[in-house]
């Protein structure tokens, strides 16, 4: 029983170690060196794995969580109603917001009567866990749609992103709406 277990090789590459003396030819190491040289020269002609970064950009995974985006609906109105659930769910306490009431002449800007006057995310605190996205009842905040990484900067203040950087641009919202209608 025990012998059979010892002979099992999970990786399929199990090898018995032997202590046998090397033959004269092996002692010269020349054969081994030539074998090694052949292995390295094979790599010389192999396809290179490098991605030339600034020119070629590696494709992001469809579920990659990058910079947040506050979404607009088909008519270009902001979805966010400043309910504060995202700020509440945020484990890093990175989100701050201030709610305001919508004026009658702002109906084309905001979908519901309440909207976020200030919406700020501190990108230095954010851990990109995506819990805000899960908490949002209005489909307003997404980390997967912007497809951008938070850019680097020298000043800490530059990492507090306001609505100017977070809200989805209007033309993209309209494009999305057109695409939806076409389908």
């Amino acid at each position: 029983m025990s012998t059979t277990i010892q002979n099992i090789s999970l990786s399929g590459r199990k090898k018995q170690v032997s202590n046998k003396e090397m033959t004269f030819l092996e002692n010269l190491y020349l054969v081994a060196i030539v074998k090694g040289l052949l292995i390295t020269i094979k790599h010389f002609f192999r396809k290179k794995v490098t991605i030339h970064y600034p020119e070629q950009v590696r494709e992001m995974s469809s579920v990659y969580r990058g910079q947040h985006q506050l979404k607009r609906d088909e008519q270009g109105r902001e979805n966010c109603t400043a309910c504060g659930l995202c700020a509440l769910s945020c484990p890093a306490e990175a989100i701050t917001m201030k709610a305001a009431e919508r004026k009658p002449n702002e109906k084309h800007l905001y979908r519901e009567e309440k909207y976020a006057e200030i919406y700020e995310i501190n990108m230095l605190r954010c851990i990109f866990c995506g819990l805000c996205e899960e908490a949002c009842p209005k489909d307003a905040i997404y980390l997967t749609t912007s497809k951008v990484l938070v850019p680097s900067s020298y000043e800490r203040e530059d990492f507090i992103f306001g609505k100017d950087k977070l809200v989805m641009p209007l033309d993209i919202a309209m494009q999305n709406a057109q695409l939806k209608n076409a389908n």
Binding site: T40, I41, H43, F44, R46, K47, K48, V49, T50, H52
Partner: peptide, 13 residues
């Protein structure tokens, strides 16, 4: 360059 090519990289370019 040779070091890079032997290691499947492209080297200084």
């Amino acid at each position: 360059k040779v070091a890079a090519f032997l290691q499947d990289r492209v080297g200084p370019n």
